[in-house]
């Protein structure tokens, strides 16, 4: 087994090294305005780290992203369980939720702009709208799939509605909600960039826009690289959380 692992790691690093070499080569074979080599990109990254621009812009992006994502989870998960428990409410709202889930949220941005202008709030709304539907949808479907026998057990032991949520609905639904949150983590990141592009420019989105307008491809690629790393890191956290809360599902995924 250790030998096999070693081969797998070697393959992974070889693949990453090959990608980096291709990036470098592509930069040298074309003009800098079209594609900057990896070395130039990293140098540009070093500069923005050094002069504090990256930290400031990343902090601004992160504030927007986390606010929108947190709202999506805080609203989406409890509302999802509520919809699963109250049939008439679910039937009344289900079609709207499906429509909004299916709508490409970017299409709503001009509308949000004309309604709410350029402040922080409309940008949070964009991140929220991108992130909330996967949380809501997965939570509703999860909470609806709770084994009726478990609800019957709770009633048999004279559980009230609140105790039923605490002991049955929430623990049962948590892994499903986490699946939704993991999707929301990815979609929220798209929402963050879209909001920074199309509403008032700020954060990492602004860095990409400015790099593009100034034909400064290196700083643009630097900002994109940071965003990729951020996305990968957040997805890993999401996966970890999902597994952590689904430990008891180990036998029945």
């Amino acid at each position: 087994m250790p030998r096999r692992n070693w081969i797998l790691y070697a393959t992974m690093f070889a693949s990453l090294a090959l990608g980096a070499a291709a990036w470098e080569l592509a930069g040298h074979l074309t003009s800098d305005a079209f594609w900057a080599p990896l070395s130039t990109t990293l140098k540009s990254l070093g500069e923005v780290v050094h002069n504090g621009v990256l930290l400031r812009q990343a902090a601004s992006s992160f504030e927007l992203y986390l606010t929108g994502l947190a709202l999506a989870v805080v609203v989406g998960a409890p509302f999802g369980v509520l919809l699963a428990r109250i049939t008439w409410l679910r039937v009344a709202l289900e079609d709207y939720i499906m429509m909004l889930y299916a709508t490409p949220m970017v299409a709503l941005i001009p509308f949000i702009l004309s309604m709410m202008g350029f402040g922080f709030a409309p940008k949070v709304l964009v991140v929220f709208l991108f992130a909330v539907f996967p949380v809501l949808y997965n939570t509703v479907e999860g909470a609806r799939s709770v084994r009726p026998e478990l609800i019957e057990v709770a009633h048999s032991f004279r559980s009230g509605e609140w105790a039923l949520w605490r002991d049955v609905m929430i623990p049962y639904t948590l892994p499903f909600a986490m699946t939704g949150i993991r999707q929301a983590i990815a979609r929220g990141l798209v929402g963050m960039v879209a909001a920074e592009f199309f509403l008032s420019p700020s954060g990492l989105g602004q860095m990409i826009m400015m790099g593009s307008q100034n034909f400064d491809t290196a700083s643009m690629l630097a900002a994109i690289l940071i965003m990729v790393l951020l996305g990968v890191g957040l997805m890993d956290i999401g996966l970890y959380l999902e597994k952590r809360f689904a430990a008891w599902r180990g036998y029945n995924p």
């Binding site: 478990l150 032991f157 004279r158």
Partner: peptide, 20 residues
């Protein structure tokens, strides 16, 4: 009228909470 104190049921498929 509703489940009473002093009455307990054992379920065919056990009815255990898998997360407990």
């Amino acid at each position: 009228a509703a489940p009473r104190e002093g009455v307990a049921m054992v379920f065919q498929h056990f009815g255990l909470f898998p997360w407990k």
